[in-house]
Design a binder for these strands. Sequence first.
DNA 1: ATCTGATCATAC
DNA 2: GTATGATCAGAT
Length: 242
Amino acid sequence: MARDPGTRSSDLGRPGPARLPLPRSEVELLQRADALAGRRLADIAAEHGVVVPPDLRHHKGWVGDLIETALGARGAGRAGPDLPELGIEIKSIPVNQRGRPRQSTWVCSTPMGGSDLGPWSGSPVRAKLRRVLWMAIAGDGPPGERWIGAPILWSPTAAQEELLATDWEVLAELVSEGLVWQWKAQHGKALQIRPKAARGDDWVWVIDQEAEWVRTVPLGLYLRASFTARVLATEPRLLTPR
DNA sequence: ATCTGATCATAC
DNA sequence: GTATGATCAGAT
């Protein structure tokens, strides 16, 4: 089918104003984030020509995508931080009435290939969490009726980084021993390893302790809600941003 | 209420 | 298929 050369496929189904340019500085990003604080997702979506789904059952990444669009960050599909020039990752996190996270937070897929994951200093977890803009999402009704809390630009404290590093070292050791496929979700103080797949029958091959190939589900690394809760607790106006 | 295994949509 | 964005939904 003929396609209007001016229409990018990523814009199909997203009529309305052109995308915001990338924020050029941390200050500009925070100004945009502050301007979103306290606002309903339906109103923000309308401004960007985004259709609001009735629920998130079939649109699990909708809130995250909307927030990125509203902040002028990249669309989905590209690797690396959301804002490569600023080195900032944007995470939307659903919170309850007390401002505590309602979910764990996706970090990255669990590296299972190879025998040496390397030190914490070079880990993908550290790279991804080096600087994060947390956007709390309050409300538990329909997506459009939820609203945005006070933004938090965060880098791990020394104590938090030590917690993460310890978990990483344990993971690296398990992988080197060919035991990562045995890792249970309850391992890890801050990080958690859980299945991360598009389908229940997805699998990957890894080498076990006896150097045999074994089949396991793809795994992902998540931040525990208890860890994220301590990050969000540093912002007293999380739920009352305006 | 929390935890954890399972799952959904889209871009490339 | 891999990466992005996560939430769902049943078990505990």
